[in-house]
Design a protein around this nucleic acid. Structure first.
Lengths: 175, 175
DNA sequence: ATCCATTGCTTTGCATTGCAAAGCATTAAC
DNA sequence: GTTAATGCTTTGCAATGCAAAGCAATGGAT
C-alpha cells in the first residue's frame, strides 16, 4: 500500500518543479509572479475586462486593479474603455508586453512537449490516461485549464475573438 | 501531436486543484498560506532552525523570521535556542499548533489515497510509472518532496528525532 | 589570548500582494 | 426619473518577500 505514497511524492515533485520554474521565470522577466500571471492570462484570453481578469485569476477586483497599475507604469499593458458600456475597462497588452511574453522563455512546457513528442505513441497514451485518472481522483477534471505549465494561466480560449461590445474606442483615461 | 496539449492541460488541472485546495485550507484554519506552509513543514520535519526552514521553503531568512513572529503571537509556535550553538534558534510547534494541524483536514491526499488504493494493481503501477516519466521530463526527479499535496511540505522525515546539538534548553528570549 | 571572517538570526526599509469597504460613474429596471 | 445593480477605483490595513545593515556567537587563524 505504499505505492500511493510514491505517487504522492511524484505529484509533489511535479508541482514543485513548476513552482520553482515560475519563480525562475519571474526573475528572468523582472516581473512578480502575479504580474506575469496577469500577462499570461491576457496573452491567452486576449483583452479582458478587469472583472473578468479577476475571475480568471481568482483574485479580488481591487487586487487586479493595483497589479494593472504597475503593469501600465511599465508600459506592458494599456487600459481602454469599452465604447458600448463605459463602465467596463479593458486590459490590453502593449507591443512591448507582447514582446516580453515572446522573448520570455516558456521552456518548461517546451521541454515537456519536445520530450513528450519523442516518446512512443503507447507511452504518450499511457501518460495521458494516467493523468486523466489522477485529475479525476482530485476532482480536477472540471477545472478550466490552459495548456501552460508556467504561471497559472487559467482559461482555455484559443479563439481570441473579441466581442463587439468589448471593442475599445477611446484612448486611455484618467480618473 | 496534440496529445502533448492534452497532457499539459491535465497537468495544469492537477496543479490548480491542489492550489485551490490550499487556499481552502488556508481559510479553514485562519492562517495565511505561508503560515500554513510553515506549520506543515515543521510538522513533517520536526523542529528546525530558522535557516533550515527558510531553505526548505525557498524563502529568505528574513521572510521566515517575520512569519514566525506572527505564528508565535498566535501561540502556534515557540522559539527556543540551541544550547550548544546559541546562534541557532529552533522553531517548535506548540501544543496548540499541533492541535490545529491535526484538526485541519488534509482531505486532498486522503481522498487521493483512498481512491488510489481502490484501484487495480496494474492501474496503480501505470500511474506511478507515468508520473515518474513526467517528473523526469520536468527535471523534477531530484527534488526532495514529502508525500503531501496540501501546501508545499518539502522534506520527508518521518523520524522526528531531534539531534542532541539542537536540543532546546532555555525559555524563549527577547531581543 | 586576540583578532578575524563566518555563521545565524533579527531589524529596518521598501515594494508588492491581497482584501473589504467606501466611493463614483454608468447602465438597467421599473 | 428615481432606484437598484454593475464595474472599476480608491482607501486603509495586514501580510509577503527581499536586500542590506546590524548584532551575537562560533571557529579558526596566528
Amino acid at each position: 500500500m505504499e505505492k500511493s505514497q510514491d505517487a504522492l511524492v511524484l505529484l509533489r515533485q511535479i508541482i514543485r518543479a513548476t513552482d520553482l520554474h515560475d519563480k525562475h521565470l519571474s526573475r528572468m522577466t523582472g516581473l512578480t509572479m502575479p504580474q506575469l500571471m496577469t500577462m499570461q492570462t491576457l496573452r491567452i484570453n486576449g483583452p479582458l475586462t478587469i472583472g473578468m481578469l479577476a475571475k480568471e485569476m481568482n483574485l479580488a477586483q481591487a487586487t487586479v486593479t493595483s497589479i494593472l497599475d504597475r503593469l501600465e507604469r511599465k508600459n506592458l499593458v494599456r487600459r481602454e474603455r469599452s465604447n458600448t458600456d463605459k463602465r467596463k475597462v479593458l486590459a490590453c497588452p502593449t507591443e512591448q508586453g507582447q514582446e516580453l511574453l515572446k522573448s520570455a522563455p516558456t521552456t518548461l512546457q517546451d521541454t515537456f512537449i519536445r520530450q513528450f513528442d519523442d516518446m512512443h505513441d503507447w507511452e504518450q497514451s499511457m501518460i495521458v490516461a494516467a493523468l486523466e485518472h489522477v485529475s479525476h481522483i482530485l476532482g480536477a477534471h472540471h477545472i478550466d485549464a490552459a495548456p501552460m505549465l508556467d504561471i497559472g494561466a487559467l482559461d482555455r480560449t484559443s479563439d481570441n475573438h473579441m466581442p463587439e461590445y468589448l471593442k475599445p474606442t477611446h484612448p486611455p483615461f484618467k480618473n
